[in-house]
Simulated assay, not measured.
Amino acid sequence: MKIVLISLETQKEKVAKKCILMSKRFNCDVEVVWPGSDIVSDCFRCINENYFLNKNDFIEKFDALGLNRGGWYYQQFLKYMVVLDSADDSVWIVDGDSEILNERIFDINTVFTTGNLVHAPYNNHIKKYMDGRLSSLSYVTNQMLFSRRKLDMMLREFYPGDWIHSILVGIDEENAQFSEYQTYAQYLLNLGLRSREIKVFRRMDLLWRWTSLIYRKYDVVSWESHKSGLLRVVRANIFYLFGRTLG
């Protein structure tokens, strides 16, 4: 098993600090897939994202379909490509802005949920391809322990041929959106894997300094640094103080 961070960060020092921490915490190799140059170090290595999926080619194909948010979707397809390219069957994909705090979520036989309701457009996209009852829970937890073999089986069964194109043509910006985590999680649930709720806090970047000094037990935290505003800040700090999932 190896951990792969999918990172937008290009500052080597920040990436190295996180990699060293995760390597020691989980006692395994760490790779970083990022926009920067290839780097090999003692406990981690960085690989340019274009090795797995050429970004310009993807965006060109994406734009030709009249879709928006090509960069955001690129990150999702990139994760699948990284898993499929791996020599290891077990690949733990972690979003680059996130940190895993609890090793209990290293469990290949469990699918982890935030316990929140799924974003409806994700399920609308999934049901275009998969039959059966879909989960109403969100499995977007900023990380996923993938099986390369199972991911390959899913893509061959539901998205034959050019699977990237097959997924893209099912996207409707308003009503049917693709989620790499939700889609794979639903496939695993259909195979009979158990579901378990974990605590996720996605907006560490919104915490007041005194709030952030208070320890709250979460399984996954992240610094997403996008939409802010007073109401979001207040909400994030209240949720954190009460140890509630936000994300």
Rank of each mutant, 00 (worst) to 15 (best):
R196G: 10
E99Q: 13
L168G: 09
M1L: 09
G96C: 08
R216M: 14
I105S: 04
K2D: 05
C46R: 08
L151F: 09
E31L: 09
D162W: 09
T245M: 06
N123V: 06
M154W: 03
Q11A: 08
R69I: 04
K17T: 15
V169M: 03
Y80N: 09
D205Q: 05
R232K: 15
V32T: 00
R156M: 06
I6R: 05
E49N: 12
T10I: 14
I108K: 13
D63P: 00
E157I: 06
F178Q: 06
W92I: 06
T110L: 04
W163R: 03
A176S: 14
S37N: 14
M153I: 13
R104Y: 01
A176I: 07
G229L: 03
F239I: 11
N102W: 01
K199Q: 10
Q177T: 12
H119L: 02
P160I: 04
I198E: 08
N190A: 09
Y181T: 03
T183Q: 02
N56Y: 11
Q182R: 01
D172T: 06
L101K: 10
N123C: 08
S136I: 10
I20P: 03
V82S: 03
R209C: 06
D38N: 15
S212K: 15
Y218G: 02
G170F: 10
A120C: 01
K55R: 15
K217L: 00
Q76P: 11
G161R: 07
Y181N: 05
V33L: 00
H226Y: 11
M204A: 10
E224D: 12
R149L: 11
G170N: 04
H119R: 07
S166Q: 15
T211N: 11
A87T: 15
M130L: 13
D89L: 01
W210D: 14
S136E: 15
G161P: 05
L155S: 08
N102S: 12
R69Y: 15
L168I: 14
E9R: 06
K79E: 12
W92Y: 13
I20V: 14
D172H: 13
V4Q: 02
I238G: 02
R156Q: 15
D219P: 02
L241S: 12
Y80V: 00
M144R: 10
V91T: 07
Y80P: 01
L137V: 02
D89K: 11
M144V: 10
N54L: 00
L241E: 01
N50T: 05
S90F: 12
E99D: 11
N142W: 03
G71R: 04
G36M: 07
I93W: 00
D88H: 13
V200C: 13
D88N: 14
I47P: 02
Y80W: 15
I6A: 05
